[in-house]
Simulated assay, not measured.
Amino acid sequence: MSRLDMSGADIRFRKLFSWLGTHHISVRLSGTRDGNSFYVYRIKAVEPVLDGGSLQPFEDQFLQYMIERIRTSILQASEEEVPEQMSMSTLPEIINFMDCCGDTLPANIRQWARKNIVTAGQEGGNADEKRHAQRALSMMLQVRWRSSYFDPIDPVEARKILDEELYGLEKVKQRVIETIIQINRTHTLPSYGLLLAGPAGTGKSQIAYAVARILKIPSAIFDMSTVRDPEALTGTPRIYTNARPGRIMEAFSMTGSSNIVFVINELDKADHEGQNGNPADTLLTLLDNLGFTDNYMECQIPTQG
């Protein structure tokens, strides 16, 4: 069995290498050698595991998932490159993830995760508290935290997508293309927004879907006509046995991305007279760069950009 000096390895992967050694997992490295350097293309967990252990079926799957999460933590991946979501439902899986990929999380979420791991793993603690903490961890760690940097976008390809989604609306399409050009100049979203006004059925939602395709980020749909309470969006506190996260946090977790195009339908039909307030007011926090707080998660979720 060969031993390699990992001192020159990408710093993002060093905790992963440490985790492999701590858990005595044997790996096969595929790559090419150039003098004293070895360029790795693939890392695969293999039998035998040291100390007489056996390779669990999920270990290589977990390893590949961790590699992709670390690799895409800085480099923006296209939709085709993003690996399939892997559910981390058990506490050992969550702890392994934090050991390997904790540095890919924003600082406040990393601190929040450590605190909730303690809550979920404490002996003799309240069963509901432990269950809620583990559920919150499982949801939060599904999210890939992207930077606000956008790679250059081809205006010709963007126009093609707009034409596929919508017929006509030339002025609207031209305004979107102008915004794309602005993004290419700064590599970030512009500080201004685009207001789409018009009667039902004129293509406002389709424009939003097209923008999501152009930016290569997922979209989430909210039907506000079914929302009767702000807590449906912001979640309920964990003090309740049946507490659950809000739809906004669920959207982050289900899409697995911190960059989402939210498509909000039927906003005028939201219940404006509920005793707990207007659900539509909650959506204003998504427009701020100060972050969004879900009552169930008990953590501020960055919404920069």
Rank of each mutant, 00 (worst) to 15 (best):
D10E: 13
D294I: 10
A158T: 08
V143H: 10
R110I: 01
H24K: 14
R175W: 00
Q174L: 09
I11V: 12
T293I: 07
A113F: 04
I239W: 02
R228M: 13
T234I: 13
S257T: 08
P245D: 10
Y209H: 15
E165V: 00
S205F: 00
T179M: 14
M6C: 09
A220R: 01
A197N: 07
K115I: 05
S7T: 12
I67R: 04
H187E: 04
E81H: 07
S253C: 13
D268E: 15
L63M: 06
T285A: 14
M1N: 11
T22D: 13
P48K: 07
I43L: 11
F38L: 09
L169M: 13
A210C: 02
F252P: 01
I180M: 00
R175P: 00
Q56F: 10
R110Y: 11
A113W: 03
E164D: 13
I248E: 03
Y65M: 11
L16S: 05
E273H: 15
Q142P: 01
R247Q: 14
E231S: 15
A133M: 08
V261H: 09
A127W: 05
D151H: 12
N36Y: 04
N96A: 15
E123D: 12
L20G: 04
G102Q: 08
S18A: 15
H23A: 11
G235L: 08
D5F: 06
P245R: 11
R33D: 03
S26Q: 13
R146C: 09
S138I: 02
G124D: 12
S54Y: 13
P48N: 07
L91P: 00
V156M: 12
E178S: 11
N265L: 10
D128H: 13
M98R: 02
L29Y: 10
P57Y: 08
K44F: 03
Y149L: 13
N295S: 12
W19K: 11
T293A: 11
A77W: 08
K160I: 01
I264A: 01
C100R: 03
G256P: 02
M249H: 12
A9V: 09
F97Q: 01
P48Y: 06
I207N: 03
I180Q: 00
M66S: 10
R238M: 13
P218I: 00
R42L: 09
A77V: 08
T90H: 11
H24P: 00
A210F: 01
E157M: 12
D5E: 11
A197V: 14
E68S: 15
Y296Q: 06
G102H: 06
D268W: 06
G201T: 06
I11Y: 09
M297C: 12
D294F: 02
S26M: 08
I153G: 10
L194R: 00
I177T: 01
Q300W: 00
T188D: 02
T282F: 03
G193Y: 03
W19G: 01
T90E: 15
A136L: 10
V40P: 02
R71Q: 12
P83R: 12
A208M: 04
V263Y: 04
I183L: 03
T104E: 04
